[in-house]
Design a binder for these strands. Structure first.
Lengths: 334, 334
DNA sequence: TTGTATGCGTTATCAT
DNA sequence: ATGATAACGCATACAA
């Protein structure tokens, strides 16, 4: 890598002159400025980022800590973060907690040494279940800005970007009741222990309460693969009065459609299905599932902007932004 | 952030003594070592990473450039990369090219200033289609190690981790012909312009040739959403002799199953379906699709290890590692 | 055993 | 208009 020193030596001038020339200082003569720039271009000189970071005491880098990236929600959020960061000339260092507390702790700790100017984080499942979040508060106390999105800890004061989990599910349930005239709506959940899961269940419960219907909740308890199918199939077989399904994740709705079809049910005549979903969710189901579409990309973008703002001006008041979801009905139920 | 200087001042000793004490130098007395470490712990001292990087002329960071992360293949690769990097005490800076040449160029350029010690890259669709890869060669010439995975440029000499695209599709096709006695196998492709797409098509073609069957290829030409369904539905409707489908991506196989069912076909009796897939692919289809399961996680891990090796010892010879895929049959066809 | 000096690459300040 | 020097925080060769 070419350095200022090397350029200076080749040109027989001082390092500081080279530096100033490259930064278009008014002090430098047209002639030498051109001479310097030509050589710099020729040798493909680039200011060493590390040195600049040391000098400026800023890394222009954001630490992004995600529970996982194979969940399409987080993948899409990451996409949004990356775009917004790039647009603001920030890099992102990505760490995956794998839903574990210890990895989350470790990542926060390792990066809070000047590597990043701030953090964007969605809390790991384990941290949230055990309600252990001291490590995050410690970071905030050390004056490194933290932004939490989606999985949020209420007790912590920092910027937050959240989804309208309660409201969107309330509206979707209401839609099933009022517009589609459904009476026995089953909620299928595989994330009941997460804050977002609880909010979604609350939205459903409130809607049923408001319309004086009885709630039916099928908790899958973190089931994997074939177990998911079996449990849903068994439930639908034993409870034939179910006329609508509301899945609060992005998998079980599609599985429910497949199981209902296997049981000979016609969709959406016998059964309406609403789930959470992303870009390809509707493409993968047939008949089309209706989805609550979270604006994951936007969540990433807004999180990044908000964090960068608070990095640049630490005196800003913290705020919580709610990104509304969109209910995308399948063609057949419109 | 606490610095060595601050510790030194508080302890009334020199900076270098503090530094040595913290690094367990034999030169330092037990007594002061303990004194120093106690204060360091108390003040939560962490060596400034940026300064260390400048001093050591190494960032312990890998630049990861992916076309996208919403594709589950790349998401899972990223997961593997992150894990392996963490295990080796490396950070990763992630950039997304969004399949475009200019963003790929930009990311490489911005990070090749000391920010990273090496790159892991899967070439963007546009770069591959236009066959423009000078920017990558330039990085290699500048002595920054580069590892390419999956989407690989043959002309470039560097470490590579690839999938057995040709072989796995050949074997899957052979399985359909020999074990499942299929005669009219349709290949469905939405990625025919990528190197991997071409390899997969070649594997299919070779198998058909070996068994003297006629190839049928449905190229979707980057169709999105509902178009995918329409094209597949139309083809299956017009070509009733098709008795097997081989999808070379992770979406169209599931769509094909749904369309076939809509046409009243029984799976797998009338139609066998094989696609590419990942963790949840089989769960989302009913009846279950058979999948060629790429070891995406392993690809990420091996790429990272190989890159770190070449970062540590630049004299190592480059190699190309092939990570074999696994054909996972659906229960029904076993 | 401890301390001083130097340098990593850059930029800002202060001479010349 | 150009150059010398110091500083960011750390680590190390070299003195003491």
């Amino acid at each position: 890598m070419t350095t200022l020193k090397e350029l200076a030596a080749l040109l027989n001038i001082s390092v500081s002159t080279v530096s100033k020339a490259l930064n278009d200082s008014h002090e430098i003569s047209e002639k030498t400025r051109i001479r310097v720039k030509e050589l710099a271009t020729k040798l493909n000189y680039k200011p060493n980022r590390i040195a600049q970071q040391l000098k400026n005491n800023t890394s222009k880098t954001i630490g992004v800590i995600l529970p996982t990236v194979t969940n399409p929600f987080f993948a899409e959020v990451l996409h949004g973060i990356e775009m917004a960061a790039t647009n603001n000339n920030y890099d992102i260092i990505v760490c995956l907690s794998n839903e574990t507390l210890h990895k989350e702790k470790r990542s926060l700790s390792l990066l809070s040494n000047g590597s990043v100017d701030g953090f964007i984080i969605a809390v790991a499942r384990e941290s949230q279940v055990k309600n252990q979040t001291d490590h995050i508060e410690a970071i905030i106390k050390s004056k490194i800005p933290v932004l939490m999105f989606d999985r949020v800890v209420n007790g912590i004061e920092c910027n937050k970007v959240i989804v309208d989990d309660f409201q969107s599910v309330y509206e979707a349930t209401k839609h099933l009741i009022v517009n589609e005239k459904r009476k026995n709506i089953l909620l299928v959940s595989n994330i009941e222990e997460l804050s977002v899961g609880q909010l979604r269940i609350s939205g459903y419960s409130k809607a049923l309460e408001d319309y004086k219907l009885t709630p039916n909740i099928l908790k899958l308890d973190n089931a994997v693969d074939i177990e998911v199918e079996k449990k849903i199939y068994a439930y639908l077989k034993d409870n034939t009065s179910i006329d609508a399904i509301l899945s609060i994740d992005h998998i079980t709705g599609i599985v429910a459609i497949n199981m209902a079809k296997r049981l000979g049910k016609e969709i959406p005549k016998d059964l309406s299905v609403v789930g959470f979903g992303y870009d390809h969710t509707q493409l993968l189901s047939s008949p089309k599932i209706s989805i609550i579409h979270q604006k994951a990309h936007k969540i990433g973008e807004m999180s990044t902007k908000l964090l960068i703002d608070s990095v640049k001006d630490q005196t800003l008041k913290t705020q919580t932004i709610v990104v509304p979801s969109e209910l995308k009905l399948s063609e057949s139920t419109k």
